[in-house]
């Protein structure tokens, strides 16, 4: 029994780390979904923008910390840009959800491919030695993992506080619940949306930076976090912001515990079957919540 616990521990801890990593992007997706009412695949493009900015900054010789700041700025900028240049056009014309999904997906695919065409598909590294780490309960966690876990929890707390206690945040929530009413009460929809995309871009860059610092950047790095985040939202639901985080943690644990319990080649099957089961039993998410919100 003691042995079983010991043997499962590394999987549990790493699973938790993966989950909290995924949770960050899931939060960004959830935020946009709840406020604007669209599934924003364009977040993948934002992730790439942030990631490559970090690399470009480092190649230009800037110190890492400065590079990170610039990368965060890039994330915010691109996210808002996506909205201003592309999405707003469709939202103003009351485009159906379907169309918005296709548009954001196209944006992501286009970005991936143009980056590959211009900068090549090669992977570039930011830090190429082994990252510092510490051993926790027999499992080694590196600084990037720990950073991501911390970021995830802090972001969750920050969003909760922002949304529930600040004017701008409450405005965003109001818009999420009832855009027309919010408008009627003088909350400017456009500004609320811009803020939402800015925050989402900020969050996504916080996920991209440690990821990329750890593993490097190439045009395809955004796909996996994006789809895992989507799976996390499906599992967790959207009722409260902590739900996608819970969903992400469960997904991360599923990925790792599947390897511990079965063969690793079944890793994906088990994790996604978990998603499927969650959907069949409770389509609104295991922890409850809104799904496709009404759009104005």
């Amino acid at each position: 029994m003691h042995e079983t616990i010991l043997s499962i521990l590394p999987y549990g801890i790493n699973g938790l780390a993966l989950g909290l990593n995924v949770a960050i992007v899931a939060l960004a997706l959830a935020l946009i979904w709840r406020t604007v009412g669209m599934l924003d695949f364009g977040i993948g493009a934002v992730y790439l923008a942030s990631a490559y900015t970090l690399w470009l900054a480092k190649s230009a010789g800037l110190p890492l910390v400065v590079g990170m700041a610039v990368a965060i700025a890039a994330g915010v900028f691109f996210s808002v840009l996506n909205y201003l240049v592309v999405y707003r056009f469709f939202i103003k014309r009351n485009a159906p959800l379907f169309v918005l999904v296709v548009v954001s997906l196209s944006l992501f695919v286009a970005t991936e491919n143009f980056v590959a065409a211009i900068l090549s598909a090669e992977r570039f590294y930011i830090i190429d030695s082994i990252l510092l780490g510490w051993t926790l309960l027999g499992t080694r966690l590196n600084v990037a993992q720990i950073a991501k876990m911390a970021i995830s929890l802090i972001t969750l707390g920050a969003i909760a506080m922002f949304c529930l206690h600040s004017r701008a945040g409450l405005a965003i929530l109001a818009v999420a619940d009832n855009p027309r009413l919010a408008q009627g009460m003088g909350i400017e929809l456009d500004r609320a949306y811009i803020r939402t995309f800015a925050i989402a871009g900020f969050i996504v860059s916080l996920a991209a930076i440690p990821d990329v610092a750890e593993s490097g950047v190439d045009p395809y790095v955004a796909a996996t976090p994006l789809f895992l985040a989507l799976a996390a939202i499906i599992i967790g639901g959207l009722g409260a912001f902590k739900n996608p985080v819970r969903g992400a943690v469960m997904l991360g644990l599923a990925f790792h515990l599947a390897v511990w319990a079965f063969a690793s080649r079944w890793q994906e099957v088990i994790a996604y079957s978990f998603v499927m089961a969650a959907l069949i039993i409770r389509p609104q998410g295991l922890f409850g919540g809104v799904s496709t919100p009404t759009r104005p």
Partner: peptide
């Protein structure tokens, strides 16, 4: 997404 599980095994 990561290979830690596989490697641990």
């Amino acid at each position: 997404p990561d290979l830690r599980a596989q490697f641990t095994k």
